[in-house]
Nucleic acid binder design. Structure first.
Lengths: 165, 165
DNA sequence: GTTATTGCAAATGATTTGCACAAGG
DNA sequence: CCTTGTGCAAATCATTTGCAATAAC
């Protein structure tokens, strides 16, 4: 976990008069140990490996805090569970593309996209505070080669693709 | 309700071997009588005014059908309930801006935005099938004039702004 | 000590579903 | 008839919350 995150979290905790607890530390560590997105349930499982005492309730409560602190962002990938994205500190205005073939989520940042959206927003009489773009797409590699390593990998690992809503 | 919608719905019903029922008709009519977005619950209320027998379960089941038929689209406006958008037939690739001051949802279409997103997607090795953009924005009018008629209206009507998640 | 935090289990709230009855074709 | 559709109430499932016990500071 980057020092940057720890720093911001400490600030937040001090500012709000909160306390450092083992459970919280474990959950935070679990959240930022990888740059992969996760659901509350997935985070719960990860956190348990660090601190067997971590409970689902505390995971949910901590998620709320981390979102409030601006360290985590809720994103909508279309499932029935909320997905959390830990990468907004590194890439403050990135967006998501979801491959409908293999379920892979690709993050992308593009200045032009941001600029154009600002433009459109201003034209409508507003000031853009946040934009989220989700693109559902199919894999060109799969179509052209008949195969795509991500699809194979995700099938093998039994990884959830698009969960039902 | 446009004839176009009725037409497409009839096709769908025939193609799938479904049946025309009063409840369904009432719900469909309620869904397309206005071009406003709605939640399942809101649709249920509207439908009840047309057919007192319509039940919540049938509303949910019909919503599923309408989405499957491509007449309605689920969109994410951030609340705890799914929002349904009946305007994708008229504006097949429109997007949404949500005013954080008054909760108003503004639809917009922009060729350039579409084009640019296609571009970005292709560069990533994918083919875009659907894109959804949500922009959270604040009202410039409110900031400059200290007032915004939408805000006033929504306050007066006690209309839900952004429901908690 | 005082107040925030936790785990548990119960509550919530949106949506889904099993089932027996009703009704389209 | 035969199958699909319906309302109801019960079930689901993610998330939230009340509470008594625990732990920061």
């Amino acid at each position: 976990m980057q020092a940057d995150i720890q720093q911001r979290l400490d600030d937040f905790i001090r500012r709000k008069g909160l306390r450092r607890t083992n459970q919280r530390e474990a959950i935070v560590q679990a959240a930022f140990s990888q740059d992969e997105h996760f659901t509350a349930e997935e985070l719960f499982e990860r956190a348990r490996k660090i601190d067997r005492d971590a409970s689902r309730a505390t995971v949910y409560r901590t998620l709320g805090l981390l979102v409030e602190a601006g360290l985590l962002r809720e994103i909508d990938l279309g499932g029935s569970q909320t997905t959390y994205d830990p990468n907004f500190l590194d890439k403050p205005s990135h967006n998501h593309l979801v491959c409908i073939d293999c379920g892979r989520v690709v993050e992308f940042e593009d200045k032009h996209v941001d600029l154009l959206n600002d433009c459109v927003t201003r034209r409508l009489g507003f000031k853009a505070l946040r934009q989220s773009i989700k693109i559902d797409a199919s894999c060109e590699k799969l179509r052209q080669n008949g195969r795509c390593e991500n699809l194979i990998k995700s099938r093998l690992s039994g990884k959830r693709l698009l969960k039902k809503r």
